[in-house]
Nucleic acid binder design. Structure first.
Lengths: 200, 200
DNA sequence: ACCCTAAGTAATCAACTGATAACATGTCAA
DNA sequence: TTGACATGTTATCAGTTGATTACTTAGGGT
């Protein structure tokens, strides 16, 4: 048997590979946060070597910032879509329901919400903190763009934070254990949101 | 010069030392969260050796759980104090203002709020997640004990979560940089809360 | 005086972490 | 064809981390 030339290992374009690593990193950071996630598990879940991950993004922090930005971009984009889709009347409950529904739909991408949450929690890191505050400010300004009073915008964002926290503490998987959790899950997500969150 | 007997190093009672370590750990976990805090920095800030910290609590996780429990106990106690102090009418705005003020006063112990926040964020850890959900449920039930509707309790808790997030992202130290941050800080804390948070 | 428990430390360890350097190999343009 | 660049890997490293073991010594009771 002649020495067989092993099949050439297929390669990816840099962009595709970068996206793949970003996906893996999003999942990992969503689960275990910034400090709790190693570049090694990101690499393993992306199917590449650990040094490659580091070299692609420079540092672990830069990787997280990229993941954070991509996640929050999706979230902001979802809000913008609702707000631009048709005129928004901040005194009309139906319009707020549409905005809330955009939130609920984000549960399909629960990792994005969790990454955002963990970015907020990692605010002790100077670079992450700055980006977190900037993100929060942009979202708030987006809501205020409807012309609603500050209290209404704050209340909406506050419910969003509750949703993030409930997700982070794995509440959807434990709604059955406590009426309180069930209540808050229902309130934060809307009733139709529960099934989506539980399925995820 | 005769060999001098070095002054005997004074010792502490186990309880006092434990309290000291818990204090240090509270500060450290408040800053950098569960995964981001090493038992070594806790030990240094408590003025004891690292192995001693570990042996006192068993594991780092157990230490965090102790810190988390102590923090959330203080928070629940603050709410209970307000609710038992005088009859609470959930249709009276003044009563809700009293409850909100209890929150604001907790800013003096901002570390407790941050520890709670980081406990919520570390929900991926099974033990921490369970305790986080339990804590959240208890607080919610406490509020519901006023007889208020679920939406009202959820809204109150949601504002608390916003406050936690704002603290975690160091918003109080940066209110000047963004009107949005200033708005949310004011809304979440109440106007008198800002100075307390900024001073901390 | 003595000893025994409780309060601590120093020494050490294996595993993990983020990062660097050196090397290997597809792939495309000229 | 060939060479240069882009896509990757293996090897390695110094620092950190949580935890264990063995040792030290203060201080109260008898």
């Amino acid at each position: 048997m002649v020495t067989q030339k092993s099949a050439p290992i297929p390669r990816m374009s840099a962009d595709a590979r970068r996206a793949q690593v970003l996906d893996a990193a999003t999942g990992a950071f969503a689960r275990t946060g910034y400090a709790g996630t190693s570049t090694d598990v990101v690499a393993r879940e992306a199917g590449v070597s650990q040094p490659y991950v580091v070299r692609m993004f420079g540092t672990k922090r830069d990787l997280f910032l990229a993941v954070f930005e991509r996640s929050t971009d999706k979230i902001k984009q979802a809000f913008r879509a609702v707000l631009e889709e048709q005129p928004f009347d901040h005194e009309d409950d139906a319009d707020w329901a549409r905005l809330g529904a955009a939130y609920t739909e984000l549960l399909a991408d629960r990792d994005f919400l969790l990454v955002m949450m963990h970015g907020f929690a990692a605010g002790d890191d100077v670079a992450i903190g700055a980006q977190a505050r900037s993100c929060m400010g942009e979202i708030y300004d987006l809501i205020r763009g409807t012309g609603c009073p500050a209290e209404q915008a704050t209340g909406f964002v506050a419910h969003g934070m509750l949703l993030n926290v409930m997700l982070a503490m794995r509440a959807p998987e434990h709604v059955g254990e406590s009426g309180a959790l069930a209540d808050m899950t229902a309130c934060a997500f809307g009733d139709e949101g529960i099934s989506a969150a539980t399925a995820g």
